[in-house]
Structures are given as structure tokens and as C-alpha cells.
């Protein structure tokens, strides 16, 4: 876990994931090229490459964007989240091939610098249908590059989690740019109902999944607000917490996870140090709180990752009154030892 940085820490799941990615991409290119050569044989190689990789990248982007909400809605989709970064980098590669060929094809070997040409060959910035669509694609590609370049854990550590996440939230801006790049570019000339509909439906699916997930998340937040009493917050009954699992509560605007294991209770800050995953949705494995996103672990009694790892999260004090669990909302310094409180097994 970030001890010594390797390009990829391979394991069986990542290998399977990547095999599926590569296979799907190859299949797409083969089918696209095949159909084009059969039905539109007068194409040129450059046009074929540009269109094949451009359309591939868009489809990949849609798949990437639904993984997030799907994982929130159904934890069985978590494995897709686990290695999503490989999918992202692969999508960037497809987009880069599309963009690179286009840049060369349409802007190079001319009388000005090709990148300068991207921004100045069409100056109709004040029109919608005449808008220089290639600028939108170029900007989206820059965002994807920044995301692909920083997708390694090295950057997670060295940019703060907040900065890293902010950068990666730009995917939504890139998504909008890409949609408009197609609508104001290819669709202005090759207008087919099928393709316009395909993209519109794609956007609808991504949007709906996000909306549904958002509503569920808001409901969850509301349901877990805790009640204050004497400096201690009353949170829940012991029986509400599953064995080896946790329940999440909002405490002083922070989310806290209370774990039950081996007849004990511990409370820690819900946010994993790695990529901000929800620890409270994790599980106790081998005595360690295990994050559901990438499997990062923390010891429940002090919020420290087991040696040789060095991550630390904040812990909270708990008290039990009968079967009612109370939490002290003041977070302790990260890595502080807090004795787990015993509770009766149900």
C-alpha cells in the first residue's frame, strides 16, 4: 500500500480486469473496421482510425461513468470500482489516438503550429452550430491526460486527497465537452438518428444512475443524524450493528463508522486515507477494518494500518448504557489508542 511505488501491483483480479478491457477494445476496433470496410469501402485509413478510436473512447467513457453509481447501489459491482483506473487510462489511450491522428490530419503540415491551428482555424466562437468543436475535444483530452497521469497512487499521496479528488471530478466537465464535441462536430455533417439517439440515451443512463444514487445517499445521510446528550451523542442500539461490520453515523458534520467484532465496539472516522473510501461499508477481516474500495486496512483500536504500513485515521470514544451506544463527538488525534468497549453478543 504505497510503501514502495511500483507501476502496478498485479494480482489475479487486475489481470482478469485488464484482459477484459483489452479484449473489448480489440473487439470494438475489429467490428468497426470490418463494418466500415464492407459498407463504406471508399474510406481512408486516417478517417477509419480517427472514427474507430473516437467512438471507442466515448463508449468506454460511458462505461466508466456508470461504475461509480452502480457500486453505490449494489455492492456486488465493487470489483469494477477496484480497477476502474485501468479502464480510465485505457480510455485515455483510445482518446489520445483519436486526438493525435485528428490533430495531425487536420492541423499539421500547414502554415502554422498545429495546436495554434486547433484554436484559430475556426473563429466562430459566438455561434453554436459553427462552434470550433475541435477545441472542445482538445480540452477534454487535456483533462483525461491529467487524470490518467495522476491515476497512480504516487500522486494520491503527493497531491492531497482533496486536490486529487477535485482533479478527478473534472471527468464530468470532460464528459460534457466530449458530448458537445460530437454534437457540434461529427453530427453536424454525418447526421443519423441512430447515433444521436445512442449518445442521448447514454447521457440519460449515466444521469439517471447518478440521480438515483444521489437520492439514496441523501436519504442515508438524513437517517443517521445523531442526538446530543451531556457531551455524548446517542447513536444506536448494539443490535443494529452487524457482526464484523459497521454502521455509519454523521457526527459533527463528519461521518463515523462504529464496528462490532469479537464482542467489542470501536469507532473510527469513516474516510479511508487512500482514496476516501467509506470504511463503514467495509468488513473486519483478520482483525482489521478493511476498506471496501481497495482493501486498505486499519486496526480498530487505534486507527493505524498494520505494520509495515503507516496510514492512520482518527478514532472516537464510545460508551455503552445498557444496549444504547453513545459516541463522544470529539475526534481523537489520528492513530490514538482507544480501548474498544465490550458489548454483549446478540
Amino acid at each position: 500500500m504505497g510503501l514502495d511505488y511500483q507501476w502496478v501491483l498485479w494480482n489475479k483480479h487486475k489481470k482478469t480486469y485488464d484482459k477484459v478491457i483489452v479484449f473489448s477494445m480489440l473487439l470494438y476496433i475489429l467490428v468497426f473496421v470490418g463494418v466500415t470496410l464492407v459498407f463504406k469501402p471508399e474510406t481512408s485509413i486516417e478517417t477509419l482510425v480517427i472514427r474507430a478510436f473516437g467512438s471507442l473512447a466515448i463508449i468506454m467513457l460511458h462505461v466508466i461513468l456508470i461504475i461509480g453509481p452502480l457500486s453505490r447501489l449494489d455492492s456486488r459491482f465493487m470489483p469494477l470500482l477496484y480497477n476502474r483506473r485501468h479502464l480510465g487510462v485505457s480510455m485515455f489511450i483510445a482518446a489520445f489516438i483519436h486526438g493525435g491522428f485528428s490533430l495531425f490530419q487536420f492541423h499539421a503540415l500547414g502554415d502554422v503550429n498545429p495546436v495554434y491551428s486547433v484554436f484559430t482555424s475556426n473563429m466562430d466562437y459566438n455561434s453554436l452550430t459553427n462552434f470550433p468543436f475541435q477545441v472542445l475535444g482538445f480540452l477534454a483530452l487535456l483533462i483525461f491526460f491529467a487524470m490518467a497521469a495522476t491515476s497512480h497512487d504516487f500522486y494520491l499521496k503527493n497531491l492531497s486527497t482533496k486536490t486529487w479528488k477535485r482533479l478527478h471530478m473534472l471527468v464530468y466537465l470532460a464528459y460534457a465537452l466530449v458530448i458537445m464535441h460530437v454534437f457540434l462536430g461529427a453530427f453536424q455533417q454525418d447526421s443519423y438518428v441512430a447515433t444521436a439517439l445512442l449518445l442521448a440515451v447514454g447521457f440519460l443512463v449515466v444521469a439517471l444512475l447518478h440521480i438515483v444514487t444521489g437520492i439514496k445517499e441523501v436519504r442515508k445521510t438524513k437517517a443517521t443524524k445523531a442526538l446530543l446528550e451531556d457531551g455524548w451523542l446517542q447513536v444506536c442500539q448494539v443490535s443494529e450493528i452487524e457482526e464484523d461490520r459497521a454502521k455509519i453515523f454523521t457526527v459533527e458534520k463528519e461521518r463515523v463508522a462504529i464496528f462490532k467484532y469479537n464482542g467489542k465496539l470501536s469507532a473510527i472516522h469513516n474516510v479511508c486515507k487512500h482514496q476516501g473510501g467509506p470504511l463503514g461499508e467495509g468488513k473486519i477481516i483478520d482483525g482489521c477494518i478493511t476498506c471496501p474500495w481497495h482493501g486498505y486496512q486499519y486496526l480498530p483500536h487505534n486507527g493505524q494500518s498494520p505494520p509495515p504500513f503507516t496510514e492512520k485515521i482518527a478514532a472516537y470514544r464510545l460508551k455503552l448504557v445498557g444496549s444504547q451506544v453513545y459516541i463522544n463527538p470529539v475526534a481523537l488525534a489520528e492513530g490514538t489508542e482507544v480501548t474498544p468497549i465490550p458489548c454483549n453478543h446478540e
Binding site: 476496433i29 473496421v33 463494418v35 463504406k40 474510406t43 454525418d190 443519423y192 447515433t195
Partner: peptide, 9 residues
């Protein structure tokens, strides 16, 4: 997707 995009040229 490949079929639709390729055919729609």
C-alpha cells in the same frame, strides 16, 4: 455500438 457507429457514416 461498433455496428451503429460504423454503419452510420
Amino acid at each position: 455500438g461498433a455496428g451503429i457507429f460504423a454503419f452510420s457514416q
